[in-house]
Design a protein around this nucleic acid. Structure first.
Lengths: 121, 121
DNA sequence: TTCATATCTGCAAAACTGCGCAGATATGTG
DNA sequence: CACATATCTGCGCAGTTTTGCAGATATGAA
């Protein structure tokens, strides 16, 4: 009976996990395949510690998986399609952007959606 | 240059807005068309005050729009496709569910995805 | 006007998050 | 073993979110 309630709670948790700029960028960064903490950190220009924390979080809920090789840890998306799914939300932020940031957005969207080399589907 | 940063921040905010069980259910409830606060409240079995607060939030960022008729206020999704998009995230919570809630989930998903009468595309 | 209905707003406490930093671990090198 | 590299974990402060409740509006009816 409370099935829908449970699902909505689970879904909300998923959204909460993705509701952070760093983590969204992180997921998009992993779209093109596994990467190690250091690479991600420098790609996103963020301290490795922070990336590590985000990754620990995403790993705990099994959104990413880890592979260790020597002293470097590689991470990859458990659901590669998730990266694409996230980008599908761009239309929903349109209005707010056009109201304030105007120019930036179209430019931005172009980059975001063209950069990745299309993984699965 | 900081375009991607801006987009990720905007996206994160969208996710944060949806990262709440009540609001997710609310959005799904509105999938089939506009409804007034009272109806939504009783459909979701939540106090109308709370629904009102959530709606105010979603309206402020233009995810829903309001139409007043007499003393009742009707709300509708600005992006009806959003409801469908949200359901596309269900596969991403699979593992976690199977680990703990097991049975509930498949049942739940069935209901969630069959109930709505397909609006747009 | 007075009353009932429908919804909204403001407030304060409790709970939750994100952040940097210091220190811990683990692996590889000489 | 000693040392450098790569990453992780624990801690505490600061800022944000959620929630119920009391009271404010707004509309319609008598």
């Amino acid at each position: 009976m409370p099935s829908r309630l449970i699902v909505s709670r689970e879904l909300a948790e998923l959204f909460k996990l993705l509701a952070h700029p760093d983590r969204l960028r992180l997921v998009e960064e992993l779209r093109s395949g596994e990467q190690d903490v250091g690479s991600i950190a420098s790609a996103l220009m963020l301290p490795a510690t922070r990336i590590s924390q985000h990754l620990a979080l995403l790993k705990a809920v099994r959104l990413v998986e880890e592979r260790r090789a020597g002293r470097t840890h590689f991470y990859r998306l458990v659901h590669p399609q998730m990266a694409g799914w996230i980008l599908e939300a761009l239309p929903f932020i349109d209005i707010r952007n056009r109201l304030e940031n105007a120019a930036h957005i179209d430019d931005a969207r172009a980059r975001w959606s063209t950069v990745p080399p299309e993984i699965s589907t």
